[in-house]
Design a protein around this nucleic acid. Structure first.
Lengths: 245, 245
DNA sequence: CTACGCACGATCGGATCCAATCGCAAGACG
DNA sequence: CGTCTTGCGATTGGATCCGATCGTGCGTAG
């Protein structure tokens, strides 16, 4: 009844994996390849929220049949990037303002927990790299560039935690808020505000000193401030094309 | 590029859905049927954690091909009940003591948030039903019965919230801790402790009075106490058969 | 002119068949 | 005698074909 797990199983985890993709290799090779391609297209904005995703079209595009496309869509749905409806189709996930605030509240309650679990595992090398990223972020003007650096920065701050499920939840939240952060960053970068960069530096310092309470406060405030600022820009949710609710 | 969503879409949500299954109808009919059957088998303990799930076997069992079985496994993996490994197989999810404590910490941080969002939507009828459930729980001796009532009780307490993703996260946590709560409940019911029932009554009273802060405290304490008690029973994690890590 | 109904087309879910992958064990070589 | 290699079997992943479902548009009746 309870068969042995194969020896070559992912017991030897390959590492923290700060990339965007989930670490799990639960589906076949073709499914993963298609999922990675689609994920890149979605996160880059090439496939905006609300876009219809036709299985046959993707299959032809990637030179495969529709079967691995279904697998890819399953992966992306678990990532929170795609919404599936039976006998109807798949769309790039699109959320209302209320849902986005929900995601930010979840982040506000969950990411401090992850950060606290990560703190003991953070090495000086990681913190140095975070400093570099914070510096680079402070001098870029392109939103997409900023966002990639920002994601790597925070992923690094969580890379000390060996927890899996908590990481998955946070990744999902980041994925689901990606587009809105992208739009928001564009209007934000023009303001030349230094609050975000100050917070980043404060975070690294708190982590370097091992001050978990201070680090908690910084991330919580960081996320909360973003949520409140986002709430002040409801126009970001108007420009989206009509799509599934 | 951004096609219209079909008219008959799940815009008209059928209700709070306190059942175990996720509300989404993202896969086909056969996939859902198989997923529901497998989920029942897993939650009942018929398929204990670590059990190998062979696609062909399930397909024959449900009189279908392996394709909908794959869909069902995807659903159950999203539910946190099954673990998939490419080119290897599927197993009923099985977690270490450390992972379980992780889940309880997540619950501790997330469920108060959900409860707070739910409070304004709770009707007197719901609260009366919760009282009945609390009463019935206090007088049952069967662990499985208690667990089903307990799950319905807490699901009801969250049914006032219209949030979707938060519900999914909590459902996942409940699924992933299900077996350990089952084992734990068995040793717990023999102690005839009244703490749990008192907490349940306190929760209903706080909700009835609209006291969000008090309700927060009760659930947080409820979950935290369970986590600490579970940590005192490491033997519950020894009886599990060898399986995937 | 409007509203209901039916039929068609597009797209997705499922069945069947074939290929790829991995674990395991038997055998050969040092 | 131990270890590496290689071949086989079991099981999963993918391709192709077929059936089911739903949206849409036209036609007709009121």
């Amino acid at each position: 009844m309870t068969d042995k797990h194969p020896a070559g199983a992912p017991v030897t985890s390959p590492g923290p994996e700060i990339a965007t993709s989930a670490d799990s290799a639960r589906h076949g090779k073709a499914s993963r390849r298609i999922a990675d391609g689609l994920r890149a297209s979605i996160l880059s904005g090439e496939l905006p929220p609300g876009s219809r995703i036709r299985q046959e079209e993707i299959a032809a595009q990637y030179g495969a049949s529709r079967i691995p496309v279904r697998g890819a869509l399953s992966i992306l749905e678990a990532d929170g990037l795609v919404r599936l409806v039976a006998n109807s189709g798949a769309w790039v996930a699109r959320f209302s303002r209320g849902e986005c605030e929900e995601f930010y509240q979840i982040r506000e309650h969950v990411e401090p927990l992850l950060l606290r679990a990560s703190l003991p595992g953070l090495t000086p090398e990681i913190l140095d790299r975070m400093d570099d990223l914070a510096e680079e972020m402070a001098h870029t003007g392109r939103a997409e560039h900023f966002l990639r650096l920002d994601r790597e920065f925070h992923a690094l701050s969580y890379s000390g935690a060996r927890t899996v499920v908590l990481h998955e939840i946070v990744q999902r939240m980041w994925n689901m808020t990606h587009h809105y952060r992208l739009m928001f960053t564009q209007v934000f970068l023009e303001q030349r505000s230094t609050i975000v960069h100050d917070e980043h530096r404060m975070l690294v310092r708190a982590l370097r000193e091992g001050d978990a309470d201070q680090a908690d406060l910084v991330v919580r405030g960081h996320i909360r401030r973003t949520r409140l600022q986002l709430a002040q820009h409801p126009e970001l949710f108007d420009v989206l094309p009509s799509g599934p609710d």
